[in-house]
Design a protein around this nucleic acid. Structure first.
Lengths: 386, 386
DNA sequence: CCGAGATAAATAGGTTTCTTAAGTATTGTG
DNA sequence: CACAATACTTAAGAAACCTATTTATCTCGG
């Protein structure tokens, strides 16, 4: 039961970035001794770190607090991004900061066993001691609880593969799997902690969304949610990797956009770079406008269902001319019910996968570790009786 | 903090319907003394009730447990349904059971002050003592926290009206406002406690949805969610009360269906009864099929976004021939991503508004009362610091 | 440089809430 | 009627927090 305060304190510290014992106590409504006790324990474990803050500007009265943050010194989590074309691996401390910086990258091989081998090689070049766990982000429909991929239109070989099993052969540590867009949403939350409610939409090889509600990722009953990419678009006849026809993903993913671009200009160079240049020059051409309208309609529907008013766009759309995002934003606003009562906001942001993976690792691997047997057993017991 | 167990115990009892102290303790992983203490306190207050269970079939060894349930004897909550055409009022005990049975009904007047007067008359004919609170369900976009209606296409006069203020003039007791579909979802949950995750869709004057996730109503960041009725349907040009054009609600609400019916058969009797008879005879005529397809697409979209696989349909669609529901179910299944991985279920159910209102009352009025000042103050303090 | 004021952290002691352990009560069974 | 089985109660102790107090460390003004 008392683990509640621990979690709350760590969550608050994640939100604040750094804080003193007293600040944490005040902001949580805890007493200073309690806050102090928890912090001491976390320092002991190596989860938190004291550091000297540069406080030349904060000329405040009284004894200055000893500032705390998540430990940035020691790599604790192996973070893996299993992407459709590339796999990236690095080791990050729990206090990882800044943009994504991948230590090791390799082309994603086409089978589980080859992936395991490539991953093993990568692991050989990294620290192996003091690790607390391994977190991997995977595209598709992911059952995070069981660590399986149920459905992956763009990376079929992951379906049914026991990815945690493969990884455990390399690192003998706890392992967590995260759905890709959820990791991105958690990463954005870490970078912009004041935005507690938003829908992150990522445009890449596929299109997916993940909702943050009250600063927490929305956890659906089924291991499926935010599947915006596989909503059928009226009039679209392109076949999708999912087996369906006309999915949004076939229009507005990188490959979908390039396909439209090539169809529109059959003789030209259909590379992403030339597409970006083309749009910068020509503006929102009609076929692009139509595509954006479709995407906006689906996004607006998700906003109406979840009761959200902020959209964070990451991925390839954010690389295009800003007018594209503006057009999308206007279209989303038209479809959103909330726009009649208040403001709807659409913004673009960089992908912050590492931060998201680390946040996942803390939540799913580190906290259970801290809470130890007693509590874990207890919560399991409680679950059984449901 | 210890209020956690109280809430958990009451929630569990709500789920089980009735249970003994020992059963509650075991099912929650609590110790018997704790369970016993909490129960004693609740009996004292009058929230729970001991009763003799008929146990001729449960011939179990040992001392039989003293069965507990929510008190069914004393009316504690005034439950009000402010409907588009009718307002219904009754007083219910916290252990209210069975289908809706409204004590007093009157046509909903067209203004706040007239409504207040009619309500006052109704109150005169009811018990006034020992009441714990008043719960009212309201259609539209409801800010439950502030007790205001932001938007109500079919009952415009409620927008901006201070409904809790009006009610407090009549009953000087705590008051809670609930969005109508959310109340229905809570009511269904009470009647079918094992279904923890579902989307309730009600077809009536309007069309609205509410999601139950893990046995709890989904609480959106904005006071808007599940607004299925105001999703535009391609090709539909009917104007909607919301100011938009082509909303689903204009097709599939009672009045929308009747309008289509009248357009299809201009000379016939366009009453609901004759429509029901017509469909029973003719089956799913093409225009109805199209309407159902539109509704199903929007419902399936919501399932995909929320990660749900069960739809509970209440209201006018459930009154039509069963083939209508079957058609709708098949169409929903086609649009649902989960249908490729597992089963999707669609069922109809009666409206259980009283149960939902009572559940709301317990959650929002009775529990805070029980937890008392100390805790309330504490949680408020915690909130401020966010 | 020093003391006063201010704030942070640590310590001590008390409260609340649960749990474990050990009764007591009430049933069915032989 | 004794005995096993189960439900409830009581008593004592443990865990987690809180309040109050003390100690530490800073700024500021002389």
């Amino acid at each position: 039961m008392g683990q509640w305060n621990k979690r709350a304190l760590l969550a608050r510290l994640q939100l604040l970035g750094s804080a003193s014992r007293a600040e944490l106590a005040k902001s949580l409504g805890l007493s200073q001794p309690t806050s102090g006790k928890i912090v001491d324990e976390m320092l002991e474990i190596g989860l938190l770190q004291e550091f000297d803050e540069d406080r030349r500007q904060t000329a405040t009265l009284g004894r200055p607090g000893r500032m705390l943050r998540f430990d940035t010194r020691r790599p604790r989590l192996v973070t893996i991004q299993l992407g459709v074309t590339e796999t990236s691996v690095s080791a990050a401390p729990v206090g990882a900061i800044g943009e994504d910086a991948w230590r090791i990258q390799f082309a994603t091989p086409p089978s589980p066993s080859q992936w395991r081998i490539a991953l093993g090689k990568a692991a050989g070049r990294m620290v192996g001691k003091g690790l607390w766990g391994v977190v991997a982000s995977v595209p598709g429909v992911v059952d995070e609880k069981n660590g399986t991929v149920l459905f992956s239109p763009n990376l079929h070989w992951t379906e049914g593969a026991v990815l945690p099993g493969l990884m455990r052969q390399i690192w003998n540590a706890p392992i967590a799997l995260v759905q890709e867009e959820r990791a991105l949403a958690l990463g954005h939350q870490a970078a912009a902690p004041t935005q507690e409610d938003f829908l992150l939409v990522d445009f890449g090889e596929g299109v997916g969304g993940a909702a943050m509600i009250g600063g927490k990722p929305f956890v659906p009953p089924l291991p499926i949610s935010g599947e915006l990419g596989h909503t059928p678009v009226l009039g679209n006849r392109r076949p999708c990797g999912c087996g369906g026809v006309g999915c949004l993903e076939t229009l507005v993913s990188t490959s979908g956009l390039l396909r439209s671009f090539a169809e529109f200009r059959p003789k030209g160079d259909a590379s992403w770079v030339s597409f970006v240049r083309f749009i910068a020059g020509q503006g929102i051409v009609p076929w692009l406008a139509e595509t954006l309208e479709s995407a906006a309609g689906i996004i607006a529907g998700a906003l109406n269902v979840w009761g959200l008013r902020r959209v964070v766009v990451t991925g390839c759309l954010a690389e295009l001319h800003p007018a594209v995002l503006r057009y999308l934003a206007a279209a989303i606003e038209r479809g959103s019910l909330w726009a009649r009562l208040g403001r709807v906001e659409v913004e673009s942001a960089p992908r912050r996968r590492t931060a998201g993976l680390v946040a996942t690792g803390i939540e799913r691997l580190v906290l259970p570790m801290i809470e130890g047997e007693s509590e874990a057993a207890n919560s399991i017991k409680k679950y059984e009786h449901r």
